[in-house]
Computed example of a mutant assay.
Amino acid sequence: MHLDPATLLIVSSVMTLLVGTLFMLSWRQALSSRALALWGVAHILGASRPGGLALRGQIPDLVSIAVSNAVVLAAYGLIWSGVRSFEGRPIRIDLALAGAAIWCVLCLEPNFYGSIEARIIYASAVAAVYSGDAAVEFWRGRRERLASRVVAVTTLGLHAAFYLLRIPSTLLAPPPPRLNPLTSPWVAILCFVTLLFSIALAFTCMALVKERAEREQRIAASTDPLTGVANRRAFASAAQAALASHRHAALLLFDLDRFKAVNDIHGHAVGDAVLMGFCAMVASLLPREAMLGRLGGEEFACLLPDASPAEALARAEELRRTFAGLAVPELPSLRVTVSIGIALARNGSDFEMLMRRADAALYVAKHGGRDRVAVADLEHAA
């Protein structure tokens, strides 16, 4: 079956409109994701370009050329804004609409408006800049490991490359004056590129939103909501894996002394602040490879991979002294200390056994006067 260019343009317009509607429906289910709304509006606006080309000659040129292309350039700016929103960066609506605004000003100039080459080169350059920078924005956020991120970068990068290629092609083979766009081979190419880009971007962006939601759920399931450190289950799993891959390690168990009194005297808000402050202090003093988790209540644990006995003891003493020295000017009567039990692992020790030994050492520290460090019997560890 033969499809004439006008039919191809109408199909492209309808498909782009459907993609935009799909984005908007997805946004209604996740209102916190402004990126979905921006991408939806962008595709709904972008559907006007193929329709404008298909109706060339049947509607005023001012609408089919100036208005429809301005709307499409604004759509590319909104796609770029959606990517920035997804990556947690400020949305610059002024920059997103700058390409369309400059296009409208240029169309007031007869020499520009009457030149097909100038219009193609400018529109292609703007689309390439927005698409290319959107690809860069996605790439900058690669520290957040999402499976579809590379696909998104590739999709936007190829789209930008297509428009960049169109610029020298137009310069080398300028379209004849007063060319009917429906007779140009670029029309069919644009149709397929628009269709592929819209569909690929829709699937990729929605996959990114879904992957981020799943990742946040996994993090929430493994993170203590108050302090932001690993919860007991996540810490135990990570510690067991670390013990299997490191010959030496040290497990530190912390118990904040007389923490119930802090809650009773100063209130639970102050108690929560003490817990969060303790985790922040530990995270700032320990090496990056250290694993910190909350076991429950005022009890915490830390695994130091490859730590020697002397290093583990030095780290524990530093933490104990620093925490005891913390003071809040607004609460001069607040005094906080911590007791620490240390157990040393050798040659793939079992995590549960290591926990029991560290807990025994912590018991010694607590019943020996609190605010001190105790080390489990090394002979027992052997």
Rank of each mutant, 00 (worst) to 15 (best):
R321T: 15
L208G: 03
A202G: 11
A135H: 00
L286G: 00
F197I: 05
L164K: 03
L285W: 01
R215M: 12
L73P: 03
L319D: 05
S284N: 06
L36Y: 01
L295V: 07
E117N: 14
A376H: 12
R166I: 02
Y113S: 14
L182Y: 00
A135G: 06
S184R: 09
L179G: 03
H248D: 09
L286Y: 08
R92I: 02
C302T: 05
Y113F: 14
A239E: 04
A37E: 03
A96P: 10
D264K: 08
V19N: 00
E137A: 09
G228N: 06
T183Y: 05
T204A: 11
A273T: 15
L62D: 13
M24N: 04
L303M: 06
Q58R: 12
G20K: 06
R335P: 06
D371G: 06
E137I: 00
G82T: 00
G341E: 04
I91R: 01
I340M: 06
C191Q: 07
A269Y: 08
R149Q: 11
E216N: 13
V270A: 12
Q58A: 13
P90D: 06
A101T: 11
R56H: 12
L253W: 01
Q29K: 15
L108P: 01
E379N: 09
L78F: 00
R320C: 08
D306G: 10
L208M: 15
G88H: 03
W80K: 00
P329T: 07
L303N: 02
